[in-house]
Simulated scan of single mutants.
Amino acid sequence: MTSTPVRAHEFDSRDPAAIHGFLSATYDPKLRIHSRKGYRLTHQRVDAGPFAIATTRQTGHLGIGANMLAGLVIARSRTARVDRACAGSADRLGPGEVFLVTRPGEPSSLRWYPGTVELCVLDLSVLAQVAVTAPARRPGSIRFTGLRPATTALARQWRDTVTFVNDVVLNSPAAGAQPLVIGNAARMLAAAALTVFPSTAFTEPTPADRRDATAVTLRRAITFLEDHADRDISAVDIAGAAGVSLRSVQLAFRRHLGTTPMAYLRRLRLVRAHHDLVRADPQRETVSAIASRWGFASHSRFTAWYHASYGVPPRETLHT
C-alpha cells in the first residue's frame, strides 16, 4: 500500500487578477468573476486526491460565472448569503444552508456576499463507485434532480459527514496518509451526497440482478476481497471482479450472508489488523498506525469494533 499525499493550500489576496487566476486554476479554467474595489479573498483548502475540502472567505461582493466546474461542488454557507442561478431556477441561500453549486456539466452563476463558505469538491468518478451498476449492465451517468437537500435532516447529515472527514481524516497525519482511509472517506462523502441530494443514482434490482445474486457470485466476490483487502477497492470493483452488476453483488451478500460487500470487507480488514497487532513490536508500532493502515480512520470506532469481535481492546493485544 502506498501513501496518498494530502496537500494543504492557502491563498490570500486583494489583487483581482491573482484572485481570478487562482479560482480559475482551482475550479474552472473558464471561470468569470466580477468584484468591487477593496475586495479580499482568503482560501484554505486540503486536497486529498479524489476529494478536497476548502474554507473560503471574502469581504466584498463577488459575481461568479462557471461553465464547467472540476467535479461535484457541494457548498455550505457558514456566514455568507449566496444567490445562485442554474438550470432556469434562481435561489437565495443563507447562512447554514447546504447546496450544490450546479449540476455536473451545467453552467451556473453566483453572487456571493461577504462571509465564509465551506466547499467540498468530489471527483465524479467516486460517485460511480458507490452508485452505478457494472459497466456491462445499464451504463449511464448519474443525474442530480435537485440542488438542495431533500430534507433539513439530510442537510445536517451532510454537515456531520464533512466534519467527521475533516476532524478524523484530514486533521490526522497518520490516518490521512493511508490510501485505504482516503478512499473510504471519498466514498463516504459520495454516498452522503447521493443520499442528501435528489438524484437518479439508486434503483431497485432488476430481474437479471436477482438472477445473478447466486452463491457462485458470492464466492467470486469473497475470493476477490481476500486477495485485495489491502487495496483501495469499492463495491463497483467487487461487482466487476464477480462479473455482475453492483445490485447483484449487493443482493448476493444480503441474501446469503445478511451483510453488504463493504461491511464484509471491513470485517476482513479487522481480522488482518488483528494479525498485525499480534505480531507487532509495541515499541515500534501503535494501534492507530495499524488501524489506519487497514482503512480505519476513527480510533474510537476501530476500538469498539475490535473489542466486540475479540473481547479485549486492541491495545491489550498489542502489548500481550
Rank of each mutant, 00 (worst) to 15 (best):
A8C: 10
H9E: 10
S13N: 12
R14K: 05
G21L: 02
L23G: 09
T26D: 09
Y27R: 07
Y27N: 03
D28V: 03
K30V: 11
K30F: 15
L31G: 03
S35K: 08
S35M: 15
R36Q: 12
K37D: 14
Y39G: 09
H43M: 00
Q44N: 12
Q44M: 12
R45T: 11
G49C: 07
R57K: 14
Q58C: 00
A66S: 12
M68Y: 14
A75Y: 02
A75S: 12
T79L: 02
C86H: 14
G88R: 13
S89N: 06
A90T: 06
R92H: 11
G96W: 04
V98Y: 00
V98P: 01
L100Q: 01
V101H: 04
V101M: 14
T102N: 05
G105F: 04
E106N: 07
E106R: 10
R111S: 13
V121I: 06
L122Q: 07
L122N: 03
S125P: 02
V126G: 08
L127E: 05
A128D: 03
A128T: 00
A131C: 11
A131F: 05
V132A: 04
T133S: 14
P135S: 09
P135W: 11
P139Y: 00
G140T: 13
S141Q: 11
G146D: 05
G146K: 01
L147I: 07
R148V: 07
P149D: 12
P149S: 10
T151P: 04
T152K: 13
R156K: 04
R159Y: 01
D160H: 07
D160Y: 04
T163C: 07
F164H: 15
V165H: 01
N166K: 15
N171Q: 06
P173C: 03
A174D: 15
A175P: 06
Q178V: 11
L180I: 06
L180N: 05
L180R: 13
N184R: 14
N184W: 12
N184C: 14
A185F: 01
R187E: 09
M188L: 15
A193P: 08
T195C: 01
T200W: 03
T203H: 15
T206Q: 02
A208W: 00
D209F: 04
D209E: 08
D209S: 09
R210H: 05
A215L: 15
R219N: 14
I222P: 02
L225T: 08
D227Q: 10
D230L: 07
R231P: 01
D232E: 12
A239K: 06
S245H: 03
L246H: 14
R247V: 09
S248N: 08
H256N: 05
G258T: 10
T260N: 08
M262L: 15
M262G: 10
L268S: 12
R272K: 08
A273R: 07
H274F: 10
H274K: 12
H275N: 06
L277G: 11
V278N: 12
V278R: 13
A280N: 05
P282H: 07
P282R: 02
Q283F: 12
T286S: 08
T286E: 01
V287R: 03
S288G: 11
I290Y: 08
A291L: 04
A291Y: 05
S292M: 03
S292F: 06
W294V: 05
F296D: 03
A297L: 01
H299S: 07
S300D: 15
F302R: 05
T303N: 12
W305E: 10
W305P: 00
S309P: 14
S309Y: 15
V312L: 11
V312Q: 06
E316R: 07
L318F: 00
L318Q: 03
H319T: 14
